[in-house]
Nucleic acid binder design. Structure first.
Lengths: 358, 358
DNA sequence: CTGAAAGCGCTAACAC
DNA sequence: GTGTTAGCGCTTTCAG
């Protein structure tokens, strides 16, 4: 269990702290996997019979089943999934091209769970917010003949997918619509969420509420900023100095904060347009954040441990993911069905930061 | 862009907030994908020539290349990856069976990046801490004939993998060793990290330091508790009432805190054995946490936003993931190489909570 | 209920 | 240089 050994060594170009090589050099050699033919020979039956047993075909005599199964065990046979897929045409696998796997992403978790429940394998890849990577991943998924693909679109133009759609690739867009192609889509109710945040702060006595959010070139950034503007206008209030969409850099967010809070007619409360904006604002304000009423769009990990705990508009990410899979399965089952868009409601989680009065 | 429509509806058994169906029912029909034969016919060349062009074989005349490529464009041909894999025997894909994808997991991010850099596709699945699921995932990956698999082992006995290893399946264990089989392994220096945390607190004047951590039945829980005990003994101090491994429930952690901090000879500082323990402790203590010196094992998202910011022993997760892929690639390249274990050093991130003096 | 034979789409020996 | 041919391991008509 303990693998202690003092000195540093080089390994594959990495310097590693400690390393051990098993005594006796007990490496393995690559053996060839047995095929169905080998199993058939071992069991003394025909290839077809082995195939039937593997696929639980009930029309096989019990004695044959036993013979074949013991041969499978003896040879340690595992059917080659690729060959089955090639022959049958289906892959029972769906792809997900999301911004980042390996980062908290309840939608992806829901996709995995829903897919698993439907007997589908999930192949997830990170686009890393990179248009070229998104393109490469989607093309690669087409080549793998996945049964369908869910994508959080990044790029502007997706017209290169037209031919894939025409070739029958089922595709669902998540969180954002895709431009240039007509596909099933599932998104959050961005405008509704901004409305909830705004009215929550109004209800707590704030006459001037400011918004800081993502760049308007990003779809959700645009939708949320526009919704906030609509809120202000609907209340007959001024909009000047209160709406700050833009790049997600510390400088830009800092400037927006200054403009919103330290101008001639400062805002007394803040709506932040997404998780990264929320975190940038909190980091910028430091301890000062404790006194500023904030409602964030998107839930934040550990939001309950901050002081005050953070009130947020939370997306129903689990439902978004599950719906994406269901839309995809429906499309796979019936490629001719009408294209559909689903908008998932958001909800508010009240924790303290949004309930501070002026 | 806006898909507003008032009422709630039922969709695939889900109630959704808002939904729209595109006008005109512009669904698509499933078309058959063209094959290489179709491309060859279209281009007026032999099948072999198409294959060569697709694989960038330099021994093809430029005019042929052009003819074939325009035929590929015209027919929108995409080579079928499954057929290529079946024929060539390799999949250029590795699997990762981790506890949870879709949760902050820098090791998985590093695996993906390293794999991509090596031209490998990554198939990641969540074991969800479930032994049966781990088994199912690994068997499924064997059937898919992946080139190799990285696993964060969950289950106790992995002897069922012996036959897969014998059949030549390259396998690397990450974060934990696997019992019952001899495989390449990469882990953090748990003992070293505990030592760093302990000595950091000693250096800041704490004579009695307590440890609260995960269950000793979990490998890292055992290693870290044992290392902490060794630290105490090495300093000639008593160990009673200072070491609290156990289940990760709020009650158990609360009881451990009481025992450590409110006994006859209370500890003045705390080492928490993993991220979940750290969060459980912080949640339990509430505002009181601000006064208790804590060093946590594992970095925590938003650790810098807490007050005081959290001092942690951070695992070099990026290197763990990258090393896992490199070990796997080395094993794939040479199945007979000796089995190897790599221990990756940890480091300390000083943020405030660990520097409070008694 | 079982067995022989064809073929999924591609690559890799071989001839031409 | 290019074309023909035989499979990769499996499923699936079709006869027995």
């Amino acid at each position: 269990m303990a693998l202690r050994q003092g000195s540093k060594q080089r390994f594959l170009g990495w310097e590693v702290g400690q390393m051990r090589t098993a005594p006796g050099g007990n490496g393995r050699s690559r053996a060839k996997r047995p095929t169905m033919i080998d199993v058939a020979r071992e069991a003394g039956v025909a290839l077809r019979t082995v195939s039937r047993v593997v696929n639980n075909d009930p029309t096989v005599g019990p004695d044959y089943v036993a013979r074949v199964q013991s041969a499978i065990k003896a040879l340690n046979f595992r059917p080659d999934e690729r060959a089955r897929q090639l022959r049958t045409g289906v892959s029972d696998t769906i792809g997900a091209a999301v911004r980042r796997i390996a980062e908290t992403n309840p939608a992806l978790a829901a996709i995995e769970q829903t897919a698993r429940a439907a007997g589908l394998t999930l192949l997830a890849s990170s686009t890393d917010f990179d248009e070229q990577r998104e393109h490469d991943i989607l093309i690669s998924m087409c080549r793998q003949r996945l049964d369908g693909v869910i994508v959080e679109p990044i790029g502007e133009s997706h017209s290169y997918l037209e031919s894939e759609l025409a070739a029958g690739m089922p595709l669902v867009a998540m969180d954002r619509p895709m431009s240039g192609v007509s596909v099933d889509t599932v998104m959050s109710d961005n405008a509704g969420g901004i409305g909830m945040a705004f009215h929550h702060l109004r209800k707590h006595g704030h006459k001037r509420v400011a918004y800081i959010g993502d760049d308007e070139r990003v779809f959700s950034g645009h939708e949320r900023a526009a919704a906030f503007r609509a809120c202000l206008l609907a209340h007959g209030g001024p909009t000047d100095g209160l709406i700050h969409p833009g790049e997600l850099t510390a400088e830009r967010v800092g400037a927006a904060l200054d403009a919103a809070l330290h101008g001639p007619d400062p805002a007394t409360a803040l709506v932040t347009g997404n998780m990264d904006t929320t975190l940038a604002v909190l980091r910028r304000l430091g301890p000062e954040a404790a006194r500023l009423p904030i409602v964030g769009f998107d839930d934040v990990p550990l939001a309950d441990l901050l002081s005050p705990a953070l009130t947020v508009v939370a997306q129903d990410t689990a439902r978004i993911g599950a719906t994406a899979v269901e839309l995809l399965r429906a499309r796979i089952a019936d490629p001719a069905r009408p294209v559909q868009s689903v908008v998932v409601p958001v909800s508010m989680t009240i924790r303290g930061s949004g309930e501070i009065r002026p």
